[in-house]
């Protein structure tokens, strides 16, 4: 079983290596169907390591659906079919079938803070514990590092054992980010992470995202164009399940090459 996986990997490795070294995620001609209905059409995109890539577009355009293909969260929905290539670190994630490994490597932060009804500590330690880490000192270290990494340590260090659900929405979302960081992922997916937050909390999360870029490859879905402009290096514009344009964020917002992108970023529809 293992050897087969490794074999397949070495084969795919070569093809990726020949193209570009820095490429973290390479998607080629990805199609996704909900039963009979096609939701993504021939999506191709290369996402670089340690960059923030924003996915924008009107609601229902497929940006969230696409994000959820990156850690195979769409697997949870009955009747989803996917074809095409989705390569992360040289492995086609729809070929290897080790979703546990995939999801430890590709973390996710959701639209609304979804902390479990446990203490702050237990929430952050949840993932590592499920991976079999039992050593108390090690867990303590992971929890502290993760909370520091999510810029929330100072706010919660005195109440680690109290309920996570007692925190404000913005704090909860940052603990969610800490929970994702605790898995030491390489990629972090964010699905409109600030849509449920007030402006001040939003700002804090945005600053956090900017600082996290040094360590992680981040893909963020947002409906807020200012946010995309503020935090991302690259931006992809989705419309009706297709990527219309994918380029440097500056370029997308200042001189997009497609009329539809321009219409969207200037607020003519959406």
């Amino acid at each position: 079983m293992n050897t087969i996986v490794i074999d397949r990997k070495t084969v795919t490795d070569k093809s990726v290596n020949t193209t570009e070294q820095q490429k973290k995620i390479a998607v080629k001609d990805l199609n996704l169907f909900y039963g009979e209905k096609q939701a993504l059409f021939d999506v191709s995109i290369d996402i670089k390591e340690k960059e923030v890539t924003a996915l924008i577009g009107p609601s229902g355009c497929g940006k969230s659906t696409f994000l959820r293909t990156l850690n195979r969260m769409n697997d949870l929905i009955d009747g989803v079919k996917i074809n095409g290539k989705m390569v992360i670190d040289g492995e086609d994630i729809y070929q290897t079938n080790d979703v546990i490994k995939l999801r430890t490597k590709v973390g996710m932060v959701f639209q609304k803070p979804n902390l479990f009804p446990m203490s702050i500590y237990d929430n952050v330690a949840y993932g590592p514990r499920m991976q079999g880490i039992k050593n108390k000192a090690e867990l303590n270290k992971i929890v502290e590092e993760s909370l520091r990494g999510a810029a929330i340590w100072d706010e919660v260090k005195d109440r680690l054992k109290s309920s996570a659900l007692g925190l404000s929405g913005g704090q909860q979302q940052r603990v969610c980010i800490a929970r994702a960081i605790a898995m030491k992922p390489e990629v972090i997916l964010m699905d409109e992470p600030t849509s449920a937050l007030d402006p001040i909390s939003t700002l804090k999360v945005e600053e956090l995202i900017a600082s996290m870029k040094k360590e992680y490859t981040i893909v963020i879905v947002t409906h807020n164009m200012q946010q995309a402009a503020r935090v991302s290096d690259k931006t992809a514009f989705f419309l009706n399940g297709e990527i219309i344009e994918f380029d440097e964020t500056n370029k997308i917002f200042s001189m997009p090459s497609d009329q539809r992108t321009e219409d969207y970023v200037t607020g003519r529809f959406g």
């Binding site: 079983m1 293992n2 996986v5 990997k9 490994k101 490597k105 390489e186």
Partner: peptide
């Protein structure tokens, strides 16, 4: 980063 064999 993660040893494929062990985690597998």
């Amino acid at each position: 980063k993660k040893d494929a064999g062990e985690i597998g």
